[in-house]
Write a protein that binds this DNA or RNA. Structure first.
Ligand SMILES: [Zn+2]
Ligand SMILES: [Zn+2]
Ligand SMILES: [Zn+2]
Ligand SMILES: [Zn+2]
Ligand SMILES: [Zn+2]
Length: 484
DNA sequence: GGAGCATTCGCCCTCTGCTGGATGGGC
DNA sequence: AGCCCATCCAGCAGAGGGCGAATGCTCC
């Protein structure tokens, strides 16, 4: 019901960015294999084992999840969970109505009640019913707003003690008992570690039934489904444009409906660019060393970065070195002068194949063909990348893509089909997006030296201008400045 | 049989970053 | 009069954080 049309709650105020990620002194990869044994082992040895086993258990646990969940997102794994209760000699108790199995009769009895929906304890305020009085009491507390377990460090309060403990770990103590055995990630909840481990294994258990996409968690699949349904749940409250994701709308509002829009300053030229990723594109296209030199259009000078080339070419602006010997026409390019000379010589190199008329310029010929020999007018004009066969509506955009496509799949021989979500067989170590940032060849500028510096600059402003960008102005700070 | 924990499920949020269509100015 | 291309922009997927509630389990 509450359509997420409006702003996000000012939740991000207390956004403690990284800071305390001082990365300790744990040795990185090699020493980190077993780094998990620390004081936690002493306190909770049992859970420590679970954590260490997390990766190898993942598959079995996952199939269990599918059994347990009401609608399994993927039907593929009908793998048996037979082995799990074979530990004891006592026989297992099976539920007749579902796959539930347990070693204790009492547990089975309790479980069966979940099928019968037997809920003797009814709320007198909303008529909802519950299995036990504890659950009823907790429910009534949500009506009355009584949350007996209050946090001592903030003003939040909770119905159960477990919720309070978890809250304090998230917000105050930052205790993260579940540690990844292959990297430094740690989480408050086991499910978060499980989700994280999928980024190591590449496992994607949640398969879209309409396309080849599969995701690593349910929310991403749900979000993906909007690409099939066309649903756009988020609406800009100013111009009523709609968006598929909240973050996209947020960027829209900042960029279109607020003044003093934050910009990112290129560290190599005066260009200001609205989006950080576009600044990356800018740096990649204009400030990256190209082994093959590029020659100035007007003189023999050669450059290895496009920005230098463009700057240089501007210095030719007022020159007119080429003068037509038949008229007063002047220009600065020999190539262009050659075209002009045709107007005097009458040369018409472009012939129409249909009617043998000849034209002096290519544009004239194509205009003629359009007008006189228009067979099928529209011709949607699909341009295909020669390397990956992906189709583009515009030639220029295809070229832009093809340039990267070469670098992206160097040895693949040219058959990197569109973008397959089939589970990668050999999982990438840790597909951090920042990796794509590397320039393919020796770049004039080393990529990593920007990542920390690309802070937006607020301009058109008195003191917050571009000089005091001494590294500490984060995007969040700028945005909060804009909000008042 | 509860009470009182722990564990799991489910939902929703934010931040991040790349991609390619669209646009507009320069040549 | 077009082409090129740098930038704008929305689409969309990546990772992770936080909470409410159901379910499981152990002990009394
Ligand atoms: Zn608190
Ligand atoms: Zn990890
Ligand atoms: Zn799909
Ligand atoms: Zn708007
Ligand atoms: Zn620049």
């Amino acid at each position: 019901e509450d359509s997420p049309c409006a702003e996000s709650p000012p939740e991000s105020a207390g956004l403690v960015k990284l800071d305390d990620s001082l990365e300790e002194d744990l040795l990185p990869a090699e020493g980190g294999v077993q780094q998990a044994q620390d004081e936690f082992f002493l306190l909770e040895a049992k859970r420590g084992q679970e954590v260490v086993l997390a990766i190898s258990n993942l598959n079995a646990q996952e199939t269990e999840d599918h059994f347990a969940s009401s609608q399994p997102p993927v039907e593929t794994a009908s793998s048996p969970k037979t082995q799990q209760k074979t530990k004891g000699r006592e026989q297992a108790f099976h539920c007749d109505l579902c796959m539930f199995t347990t070693a204790r009769a009492a547990s089975l009895n309790r479980h069966v009640k979940t099928h019968t929906n037997e809920r003797p304890h009814e709320c007198h305020l909303c008529l909802k019913a519950f299995r036990t009085v504890t659950l009823l009491r907790n429910h009534i507390n949500t009506h009355t707003g009584t949350r007996p377990h209050k946090c001592g460090d903030c003003d939040m309060a909770f119905v159960t003690s477990g919720e309070l403990i978890r809250h304090r770990r998230y917000r105050h103590t930052h205790e993260k008992p579940f540690k990844c055995s292959t990297c430094k990630y740690a989480s408050v909840e086991a499910s978060k570690l499980k989700r994280h481990i999928r980024s190591h294994t590449g496992e994607r258990p949640y398969q879209c039934h309409l396309c080849s996409y599969a995701s690593k968690d349910t929310h991403k699949l749900k979000r993906h489904m909007r690409t099939h349904s066309g649903e756009k749940p988020y609406e800009c409250h100013v111009c009523h444009a709609r968006f598929t994701q909240s973050g996209t709308m947020k960027i829209h509002i900042v960029q279109k409906h607020s003044e003093n829009v934050p910009k990112y300053q290129c560290p190599h030229c005066a260009t200001l660019i609205a989006r950080k990723s576009d600044l990356r594109v800018h740096i990649h296209n204009l400030h990256t060393y190209k082994a093959a030199g590029m020659e100035c259009r007007y003189c023999p000078a050669v450059f290895h970065d496009r920005y230098g080339l463009l700057q240089h070419q501007k210095t030719h602006r007022s020159e007119k070195k080429f003068k037509c010997e038949h008229c007063s026409y002047t220009c600065k390019e020999g190539r262009r002068m050659a075209l002009h000379t045709r107007t005097h010589t009458g040369e018409k190199p472009f012939a129409c194949l249909s009617c043998s008329q000849r034209f002096e310029k290519k544009e004239l010929l194509s205009a003629h063909v359009r007008k006189c020999h228009a067979a099928s007018p529209p011709a949607p004009a699909v341009h295909e990348c020669p390397k990956c066969r992906k189709a583009f509506s515009r030639w220029a955009n295809m070229r832009r893509h093809a340039g990267k496509c070469a670098a992206a799949a160097p040895g693949a021989g040219g058959r990197t089909q569109a973008r397959m979500w089939a589970v990668p067989k050999e999982p990438p170590p840790h597909p951090q997006e920042a990796a794509a940032w590397e320039a393919e060849e020796a770049s004039m500028v080393r990529g990593d030296q920007y990542l920390g510096e690309m802070t937006p600059v607020n301009f058109g402003e008195t003191t917050a201008g571009r000089k005091d960008l001494d590294g500490d102005l984060t995007c969040e700070m700028v945005l909060s400045m804009l909000n008042e």
